[in-house]
């Protein structure tokens, strides 16, 4: 186990290193003068300019520049946004939790939709109900997420007027920033009409969460269905049936665990796709998350912000994947199967 953890840690360090290398390379790939992009200062002869040359290590070779970059990153100095003039780390701290909140709810929702339907389809393998669910999931999977979001807005927000169209909470409420997760912030705060604020925030959340969750749910359905169908045909399920257990008993005691264990890593991997979808959907719903923020940065060519945003999102994805890897391994009883030699 220690060896495994060390290997994962090693992978983590190496991956982060590669990501910093990629974002560092971005500096030179942006159009225009590299230093001007980074600092926003265009006059070359001022004392300020010389200071910046030294700060970024531009008076030395590129390896030195990369070293300086790593040093700045490590110290939490990710640069200044050229459009707002704020520290990028501070801005990311504001927008990243909003995205994570949306993604986590969407992930949970998609699992809650996908796994039961996947089981239903898998247990009725190749029956009409299975084919129905499968067709619906193919349809859902084929719909682009931005189009689905627009459809949802058109129908539920504009035509029926049931749900708000954009934003995170109505402007009437002023929620003090605490964790960045709005539901937690509302519960923590001491504003007068907490209940109303909470329901308002939830109503704002429904459409974006739904549009992200549906796509992932269809993938979850397909993964689960495949696994259920395979497991229910395996020898040990037959053996359990022959031992005289009823079909429900066989399913709950032997089917469920064996179905979920192999697919958990695949399900977890969907989180990265989901995060990408969340960033697109944010733009449509004007959700103040990192996707929206990055898009704005791209529009106004705020290069330090693009660089910082890419790095932040990558780090979140890497940490999440690695943590889940470790958690799944700890709970899996078959973790040492491949280590034991077989004849």
């Amino acid at each position: 186990m220690i060896a495994y953890l060390l290997r994962r840690l090693n992978l983590f360090v190496v991956t982060i290193f590669v990501v910093t290398l990629a974002t560092f390379a971005l500096n030179y790939l942006f159009p225009g003068d590299t230093l001007e992009n980074l600092s926003g200062i265009s006059s070359h002869q001022t004392a300020e300019y010389n200071q910046i040359v030294q700060y970024h290590g531009f008076d030395h070779n590129i390896v030195y520049q990369y070293g300086m970059y790593l040093q700045h990153l490590w110290k939490g100095d990710w640069g200044i946004s050229s459009s707002s003039g704020n520290d990028i780390v501070e801005e990311i701290k504001l927008v990243l939790p909003a995205t994570l909140e949306l993604s986590v709810y969407a992930m949970v929702l998609s699992l809650f939709i996908g796994i039961p339907f996947g089981f239903w389809a898998g247990l009725r393998h190749r029956r009409p109900i299975d084919l129905g669910i499968l067709s619906a999931s193919v349809l859902g999977y084929s719909i682009p997420v931005f189009w689905l979001a627009l459809l949802l807005i058109l129908f539920f927000a504009l035509q029926l007027g049931w749900l708000p169209m954009s934003g995170r909470i109505s402007l009437l409420y002023d929620i003090p920033h605490y964790s960045g997760f709005i539901l937690i912030d509302i519960l923590k705060s001491d504003i007068p009409n907490k209940q109303d604020a909470l329901s308002n925030a939830i109503r704002h959340m429904i459409l974006p969460t739904l549009s992200i969750a549906l796509v992932t749910a269809t993938i979850v359905i397909r993964i689960t269905r495949r696994s259920v169908a395979d497991v229910m045909q395996s020898d040990y399920i037959r053996a359990a049936l022959a031992r005289g257990l009823t079909r429900p008993q066989v399913f709950w005691r032997h089917g469920l665990r064996n179905t979920l264990l192999p697919i958990l890593p695949q399900l977890v991997l969907q989180f990265t796709t989901l995060l990408t979808n969340a960033m697109i959907v944010e733009v449509i719903f004007s959700w103040p998350g990192i996707g929206n923020w990055l898009m704005q940065a791209v529009y106004v060519q705020d290069f330090p912000a693009i660089r910082g945003g890419v790095l932040a999102v990558s780090i979140v994805v890497i940490i999440f994947t690695l943590l889940m890897d470790i958690v799944l391994r700890v709970i899996n009883p078959l973790k040492n199967r491949d280590i034991h030699g077989t004849i």
């Binding site: 020898d235 040990y236 037959r238 053996a239 022959a242 257990l245 005691r253 032997h254 064996n258």
Partner: peptide
């Protein structure tokens, strides 16, 4: 359950691995 028993071919596969 009560009156018959089966020994399955390929015993290692006939046990739930988990």
């Amino acid at each position: 359950r009560d009156e018959m028993s089966v020994f399955f071919q390929n015993a290692p596969d006939a046990f739930d691995p988990t």
